[in-house]
């Protein structure tokens, strides 16, 4: 029972805190919206990197699939932004479903690089090949095409903020549930000992495939929301440079955890925001932070928070007469 409550309560508290801070720092509303959207992207990458132990240098491709699907739908076909978002997710699921069987059988380094290649091909396709549809570098604008949706007119930034919060809450609850589910345990188990998983009778190929599809779906959802937020999409959204950013954010927050991606997005976008006031380009900062996190704080921000809270919790328990945790 306790865990079921926690699955909903954690995300609820987080979303409420975000909503409160939207009123405390009202000038930062778009920034908070962006953090939530970016968190979804990081959560997708976290399934690959944190849970399954696969590095991908091409996550922006899956992001751009969602963004372009929504954008093309809104610019040419329909007017309903919610439908556009659902189509974006569908695009991500289909992409993951189709590419999965080819990609996940590759070795770790090949997997990382074929995704990078895919990313480059994606930019090329959207920038040059489909220039008639996507308008290339100019970007595809569709803000005026979006229609009013009943209940919540998400064309207004304030409403869009709450729309994103609702989505973020739902996804976080599902993500938190996934972490506790047999699937989540299977992911983590697969990461450390695939052979044993097979000899417990699990079809590891399919589990990895499911993970790949989930990652792709989350990335494309994030891409769709990006598109709806900006009102236009251009090919730079899918650039390979961004693959590094999402990896760094995953590491920074704490990989393989439920709330790590949020803190990663918060930390990363926060640093980016601060640094970009002094430095126009911030590769140096990103690189240094990654190295520090990799070597010194492998558990990331969320891992650090949990460690501190565990210490307090442990002290209470120890005073109740329980042995301390073993270390080796």
């Amino acid at each position: 029972m306790n865990k079921k409550v926690k699955t909903v309560l954690g995300p609820f508290i987080l979303v409420v805190l975000l909503s409160i801070s939207r009123y405390l720092f009202s000038s930062k509303m778009t920034f908070i919206t962006e953090i939530a959207i970016y968190s979804l992207f990081v959560m997708g990458n976290n399934i690959l990197y944190g849970y399954l132990g696969m590095v991908s240098f091409g996550q922006p491709f899956y992001l751009s699939i969602g963004a372009w699907t929504s954008a093309i739908f809104l610019a040419y076909i329909g007017h309903n932004p919610i439908l556009a978002m659902l189509l974006g997710i569908a695009g991500g699921v289909i992409t993951g479903f189709v590419l999965g069987p080819f990609f996940i059988r590759l070795r770790g380094d090949y997997f990382a690089l074929i995704n990078a290649a895919l990313c480059a091909i994606g930019v090329f396709v959207f920038q040059k090949l489909l220039i008639g549809i996507t308008r290339g570098e100019d970007g595809l604008w569709f803000r005026t095409q979006m229609s009013r949706v009943r209940l919540l007119d998400i064309r207004l930034p304030n409403n869009f903020f709450f729309f994103v919060m609702i989505i973020f809450f739902i996804v976080l609850v599902l993500y938190s549930h996934m972490n506790n589910s047999v699937l989540g345990s299977s992911f983590k188990a697969l990461k450390v000992n695939e052979r044993k998983m097979r000899f417990l009778g699990f079809d590891t190929f399919r589990i990895r495939w499911i993970g790949f599809i989930l990652a792709s779906a989350l990335s494309s959802l994030s891409g769709s929301l990006y598109a709806l937020n900006l009102g236009f999409v251009n090919p730079s959204l899918g650039e390979t440079h961004r693959a590094a950013e999402v990896l760094v954010a995953t590491l920074l927050g704490g990989s393989g955890t439920v709330y790590g991606p949020f803190f990663g997005a918060l930390g990363f976008l926060g640093i980016k925001d601060l640094v970009s006031r002094w430095v126009t380009r911030w590769e140096l900062v990103v690189g240094v932070i990654t190295l520090i996190v990799m070597f010194r704080f492998s558990k990331g921000i969320w891992g650090g928070i949990r460690k501190v809270s565990l210490k307090i919790y442990d002290r209470d328990e120890r005073s109740a007469g329980r042995c301390g945790r073993q270390r080796s």
């Binding site: 589910s181 299977s186 417990l200 079809d203």
Partner: peptide
């Protein structure tokens, strides 16, 4: 994990997401 596998003989059905360790 080991027990769960014995319940579901077909590899990976949708239940793997719905079932929790609780």
């Amino acid at each position: 994990l080991s027990y769960y596998r014995r319940l579901e003989k077909k590899g990976v059905p949708a239940g793997i997401f719905l079932a929790t360790m609780n």
